[in-house]
Design a protein around this nucleic acid. Structure first.
Ligand SMILES: [Mn+2]
Ligand SMILES: [Mn+2]
Ligand SMILES: [Zn+2]
Ligand SMILES: [Zn+2]
Lengths: 135, 135
DNA sequence: TTTCACTTTAGAATAATTATAAACTAGAAT
DNA sequence: ATTCTAGTTTATAATTATTCTAAAGTGAAA
């Protein structure tokens, strides 16, 4: 994903491409593989990588804006902090509790044969599978 | 589960059956169906039900002791608070985000046909399925 | 250029949880 | 039964993640 695409991505979702947003978006979206992170880890990585310091509140704001815009998803992981995911497609995860790391599993790599029907009056929105790992 | 069993349950896991622990254990374990709760919700319910007030710190302590003893499991649910579960067997959940409610799914009610192999050097500890509901 | 709604930021506020340390108690030892 | 003590409870402080506030800054429309 090139810089011009980043600008498009931001503008098309009604987000003004400010210096901070562009920097964070480039960091998050200009990569081949999916990236899973917490606000804390992102903050550290940005601080290390970049010259200009972005306020923590801005990182929170930006991550939430990106999530609302559909550019990030939130992953439920054991622990206190919120995890985000640059992979917004329907997919599953390995979770390695030793390293607190998430690894993507393509939706097609898990086939569920039998599934219960939703409770009365409810419908199934989506199915998430977590495969917890050990050594 | 009768009171005598509660006492056994506590003692057999090295927990002295104090007034507070017995009261919480009775509330949690003397029921037919699985119970899912947060410390906050448990605190409210206990306050309503009981005469004697149990300190919030004690509820945290007790819930963690029960979890460590294997009498409660922790469930990962979207949101800030930690959810606990009186069902400690291997099972799955419906999650209704409207009501923030969990509903058990028996392990046998979900059959997974295809599953990816664990990453190098890792093994699969367990598989958890979440079925998110909508109206 | 001027303007202004949107954005960033430092710092305060909030919410969940954990830590501290003093008072209390279950139950073993006497 | 009384004493003793390690384990427990409790009020309160501390910590951590996150959100709020409101003042200063800025992208981009006009
Ligand atoms: Mn979590
Ligand atoms: Mn959670
Ligand atoms: Zn992912
Ligand atoms: Zn359950």
């Amino acid at each position: 994903m090139k810089k011009i695409d980043i600008l498009k991505k931001l503008r098309s979702s009604g987000l003004r491409p400010t210096k901070q947003r562009v920097e964070i978006a480039k960091f998050l979206f200009e990569r081949e593989k999916t990236f899973h992170f917490t606000v804390e880890s992102l903050n550290k990585l940005l601080t290390k990588k970049s010259a200009s310091k972005i306020a923590l509140a801005t990182i929170y704001n930006t991550v939430h804006s990106f999530k609302t815009a559909g550019h990030l998803s939130e992953v439920e992981v054991r622990g206190n902090k919120t995890y985000f995911d640059t992979n917004v497609s329907n997919h599953h995860h390995f979770y390695d509790s030793e390293t607190a790391e998430l690894i993507d599993i393509d939706a097609n790599d898990i086939i569920i044969q039998k599934i219960p029907k939703a409770p009365n009056g409810k419908k199934i929105k989506n199915v998430e599978v977590f495969i917890n790992l050990k050594n």
